[in-house]
Amino acid sequence: MAEARNEPERGGPRASRNVRVVINSESDIVAARQKGRALAEEAGFKHSSDLAAIATAISELTRNIVEYAALPGEIDLRQAQWLGKTGIEIIARDTGPGIPDIGQAMTDGYSTGGGLGLGLPGVTRLMDDFEIKSRVGKGTTVMARKWVP
């Protein structure tokens, strides 16, 4: 807790120990989620349900890159700290076509890629914090965080 008090709050969660996984094909999905799971264990996640949730979220975010975006994309995985809490931060970045209607993409059952359309709304349920930024023609960045309970 003492450490947290010294941190400036205005900066928001602080991240460290970045692990980048470059996504070139579907075969990188397993590597990305396994690295994320290992990092989550290091960050202090103990419950197998939390570890499975994190690995599943990474799997879905990576899958979005493979299915919709221009490859390669990237997944950044790191530990996050804020107000004495520790967690894991996942950033999925691509330079794909972007999402014209984010509200629609965040609706259960909506899909343009022939998938189930559960990816993004599902990830918000698996994780604690979620942000998405997308520019048509430029790409999409999704950030998701989960805190050690």
């Binding site: 349900s49 570890l51 499975a52 949730a53 879905e60 189930l116 559960l118 349920r125």
Partner: peptide
């Protein structure tokens, strides 16, 4: 299907 996997599947809507 392990309990933690079932948990994540349901949250994902699968």
């Amino acid at each position: 299907v392990k309990p933690e996997i079932a948990f994540s599947m349901v949250q994902l809507g699968l």
